[in-house]
Amino acid sequence: MNVMTAGDLKATDLSALDNKALMKLEAEIAQRFMGGVPWGSVAWSLTNLAVWLSLWPLTILGIVPIWVAFPIACLNVMLSYLPSHEAQHDIIARPGEPLRWLNQLIGTVSTIPLVGPYRVLKMTHMEHHKHCNHPELDPDIHNKAESAWDFLRQSLSRRFRLGGGGDAGYAAAIERIGGPEAGLAQRDALILQLSYLAILFISAWNGHAIEAALLWWLPRHVAQTYIGFYLSWAPHHPSIETGRYKDTRAFKSAIGNIGSMGMQFHIIHHLYPRIPLMRTPAAYWALRPILEARGCDLERL
């Protein structure tokens, strides 16, 4: 039955294929976008961290004014999550592969500016994939909102409430997962959180409170809002349906694909999590006819 290739997709009536053949064709096309080390993400992670770290001495020594450093720091913290996300899916190297150490290194150091413990992020992200849009089991469900403005309102409101941030959902998920790995995740979260606060307090009491506020504390809040919006709310909106072809959508971002950090094509990530971020646009265009045939929400993209 399945004799067509990806190149034939546009010209062929996919409705002639049964479910099994369509699934096989989809997997064959997706497979072409997997494999290899995403060196772009590795360079992104290390460069981003180096730039953010360099802002501290540069501002404290008065070489770079804080008003110049602040937007750069915001960008750095916003950019810090996605390379770690590649590592969470073992895209850089799988267990047992020679570059596994690099996968774990990128996963761990990338999100230091975001104060995101790798083990927690990985465990909760796997739960998100497993239970996407589930009202109780998806750790990211707190980002569900009726509109972009509603997301912003809820995001800020949660932040003002004690224990009401996204961390609460993640902590509950870790507790639910349980086991030794969950215990290590809780330990990592505690160490990272206490280190973050210690650095803020020590910087502040040594005369660098404004630098600490504008290089870390406020950029982290800006980044948490941005990441929650583009990596969670926008691709899963309206976060009602569950299921392989229904829990994520393609969407047209007002600030383009780079501005939304590739999240316009997040549907590809949920279907094939091992496709590197930078290849998801090409994979989307190759798979689009199948996604359309599957009834996915592809909006105007």
């Binding site: 004690l162 505690l190 606060l197 307090f201 502040a204 009491w205 005369g207 409170a209 506020a213 504390w217």
Partner: peptide
């Protein structure tokens, strides 16, 4: 101990960060 410590975190944050930040502003 840690639970109590984190329950009082806003006070520690006020003392450790808001206080010197306000002074420096």
């Amino acid at each position: 101990v840690l639970t109590r410590f984190f329950q009082l975190m806003p006070v520690w944050f006020g003392l450790g960060f808001i206080a010197p930040l306000t002074a420096q502003i």
